Every structure is written in C-alpha cells, then in structure tokens.
Simulated assay, not measured.
Amino acid sequence: MFNRPLPLLLALLLPVAAAHATVRTETGAGESKVGVSETYRLNVPTEKEISTTEIRLVIPAGVTITRFQVTPGFTRTVKTNAAGLITEVTWRGRIAPQEYARFYFQARNPDAAGPVSWKIYQTYSDGSVALWDGSDPEKAPASTITVQ
C-alpha cells in the first residue's frame, strides 16, 4: 500500500537532483532513432544566486541542426563549418535565480547508433562558467542522448 508513493516521490525529485543543463527530446526522452528528424529541448536552470546570461551548445558530430524555435528575450548566434553545418549555438539573455529556460531546436540524428554527447557551457552574470561537457563526469557531466 505504501510502495506506490515512494516511486512517485522519487520521480518528482529527479529533476531537482539532475538540475544541470541537459538536452532531451521534446517529450523529455533520453533516446531517439537513427537518422530521424527530432525536436530537442535544451533545459537550462540557474543554479546560483545570480543570473545566467549566456548558454553555448556544441553540436555533436553527425547531428544536423535544421531550425530553431524563437525564444523570447534571447538572441541567438550560430557558428558553422566549411560545409555550412551548424557546429555551435549561443543564446544570450537572462535567466534569473530559481528560474530555468528551454530552448527548442530541430535536428537530424546521426546515421549510426550510439551515444550522442552534447557539450553545454552556462555563463553567469559574474563571468563564471558552468561546464556541462563531461570534463569532470562527477561534477560536470555532459548531456547524452542514445541514438538507436
């Protein structure tokens, strides 16, 4: 009788425990299909008592960004490679303490199955940068999607 509330409580607390910047599918899934077009969301919570002012997303090899959803209050710039493919996206704006923002974009998944690691760099108003790039798997994990 009391076993059911515990999983529900754990599910509600999971977003708090994993409160770093993450990329997931639009529905929140951590997996997608090989070669398909998918809508992704970059979720960025402010974890300090100061505002987030910039988010930089490095696009993994094999992922092709096709379009972005407008995010009011933010400007977006992109870097491209010689082939014209987007390699980095930077959003500038303000996410206040105890708030988060979601940035939606569409992309075509790689043609091969496996993990896809997204490197995210979150800059705060004091100039400090939170590295969500896997440089320290314990403290700075990269967000990973599994393409199957």
Rank of each mutant, 00 (worst) to 15 (best):
residue 58 V to T: 09
residue 135 S to A: 14
residue 64 T to H: 08
residue 145 I to H: 00
residue 75 T to Y: 07
residue 18 A to W: 14
residue 117 S to E: 14
residue 128 S to R: 07
residue 123 T to G: 05
residue 37 S to W: 12
residue 66 T to S: 15
residue 141 P to F: 06
residue 100 Y to H: 11
residue 29 A to G: 11
residue 97 P to V: 04
residue 12 L to A: 14
residue 82 A to Y: 08
residue 31 E to G: 10
residue 81 N to D: 15
residue 112 A to M: 10
residue 139 K to T: 10
residue 25 T to M: 01
residue 82 A to C: 04
residue 73 G to C: 09
residue 132 W to P: 02
residue 133 D to W: 03
residue 87 T to I: 01
residue 134 G to R: 04
residue 99 E to A: 14
residue 5 P to C: 05
residue 5 P to Y: 06
residue 84 G to I: 05
residue 79 K to N: 13
residue 117 S to N: 07
residue 52 T to R: 12
residue 30 G to A: 12
residue 131 L to T: 08
residue 100 Y to L: 14
residue 75 T to N: 14
residue 29 A to I: 05
residue 88 E to D: 10
residue 76 R to W: 03
residue 63 V to A: 00
residue 24 R to D: 12
residue 117 S to R: 10
residue 38 E to W: 06
residue 79 K to L: 11
residue 86 I to E: 03
residue 59 I to A: 07
residue 102 R to P: 01
residue 135 S to W: 00
residue 111 D to C: 07
residue 127 G to Y: 02
residue 49 E to G: 13
residue 72 P to I: 09
residue 61 A to P: 08
residue 43 N to T: 14
residue 144 T to C: 06
residue 54 E to Q: 13
residue 62 G to C: 07
residue 12 L to E: 13
residue 84 G to Y: 03
residue 21 A to Y: 05
residue 96 A to C: 08
residue 8 L to Y: 06
residue 110 P to E: 03
residue 72 P to C: 08
residue 130 A to W: 09
residue 79 K to E: 15
residue 77 T to D: 09
residue 62 G to N: 04
residue 123 T to P: 04
residue 94 R to I: 14
residue 80 T to C: 03
residue 34 V to M: 05
residue 106 Q to H: 12
residue 32 S to A: 15
residue 15 P to F: 05
residue 7 P to R: 03
residue 21 A to N: 05
residue 25 T to P: 00
residue 62 G to Y: 04
residue 105 F to R: 00
residue 90 T to Q: 11
residue 79 K to Q: 12
residue 5 P to F: 09
residue 71 T to H: 05
residue 69 Q to F: 05
residue 68 F to L: 00
residue 57 L to I: 08
residue 93 G to M: 07
residue 113 A to K: 09
residue 43 N to W: 09
residue 52 T to H: 08
residue 44 V to T: 11
residue 4 R to L: 15
residue 49 E to F: 08
